[in-house]
């Protein structure tokens, strides 16, 4: 009987933990279908008539809030900016980071470890520490307020991350597999492309996903280094909060929309994350 009591307690513990993490998300999802009035009611309403007004307003760029003037938002442009910045950053990171990770994993060269560590140390510096000098430099050389500049700065966050994750995966691949492929008559590049990269795919996928999330969620760099023309959703959402009104429904709706791409990407990449392909390849 004691086992049953334990399992019941465990069940409630799980429910509590899941509630703790999922409830805010569920409630925000809920809020995005409510009017501001319904959200601000003292006793929260559980049953209401869902409205798509927030979503339509977000899409069309203007929304009338009861009792206040019409509000204009540039959320659509922010969303496009976010996509450009995140996809751009991850692409550049993959292009530079994967070959670099391979080099660090396979070849021992003078100062290699130091370079790898220096790259990692970019992650130690608080963004606020470097943002002011960067801002000055970028204004000077005319890079302020461009996608290129932001994607470049985002590399400070994404490149070390990908480099260090993927490097570990490359190190786990036995060099003998690559040698075998070359002895078959393939060139070095073919063995890199056909053997090393496919075998490190779970690592590359996981690292790309993390990079995408970091880039998508970045706030400080985009706030300081860009105007509203290129700012992503994280910064754009600030505009929702005005002196005259805080449209909670609209904010909730913005959150739901901005979480969706990451969520979809995570689900899509999941199958690569669990691929334990290298198991059993080499006699251990």
């Amino acid at each position: 009987m004691s086992i049953n009591v334990w399992s019941i307690l465990k069940f409630f513990a799980y429910v509590a933990i899941i509630m703790f993490f999922l409830f805010p998300i569920a409630w925000i999802f809920n809020m995005s279908f409510m009017t501001n009035d319904e959200i601000l009611r003292k006793v929260p309403v559980l049953f209401y008539e869902p409205t798509f007004k927030n979503y339509i307003g977000l899409w069309e760029g203007e929304i009338a809030i009861e009792g206040f003037a019409t509000m204009y938002v540039y959320f659509k442009q922010n969303l496009i900016n976010s996509a450009i910045l995140s996809v751009g950053s991850v692409s550049v990171t993959l292009l530079l980071g994967v070959p670099a990770a391979y080099a660090f994993a396979r070849y021992k060269f003078k100062g290699g470890e130091d370079i790898a560590f220096t790259l990692l140390s970019f992650r130690f510096a608080p963004a606020l520490l470097i943002i002011l000098p960067l801002n000055l430099y970028f204004s000077e050389i005319g890079l302020y307020d461009s996608y290129f500049a932001l994607i470049w700065v985002y590399q400070l966050i994404t490149l070390p991350l990908l480099l260090w994750i993927v490097r570990g995966y490359f190190e786990d691949i036995s060099p003998d597999i690559e040698y075998a492929y070359r002895l078959d008559g393939h060139s070095w590049f073919q063995s890199f492309w056909k053997i090393s990269i496919p075998l490190a795919k779970p690592g590359i996928a996981a690292a790309s996903l993390l990079c995408f999330i970091y880039a998508w969620n970045n706030f400080v760099f985009a706030l300081i280094l860009g105007s509203s023309q290129i700012q992503p959703v994280t910064v754009g959402a600030l505009a929702f909060i005005t002196a005259s009104a805080i449209p909670y429904g609209l904010i909730a709706c913005g959150i739901v929309v901005s979480v969706l791409p990451t969520l979809i990407l995570a689900l899509f990449i999941q199958k690569y994350l669990v691929q334990g392909l290298s198991l059993g390849a080499i006699k251990g």
Binding site: I177, A180, L183, L199, L277, A281, I282
Partner: peptide, 15 residues
Amino acid sequence: RDVSMAFQNFALYPH
């Protein structure tokens, strides 16, 4: 080189 090799750890391509 016109040489082939069978490795002690087999070195098969797992994918």
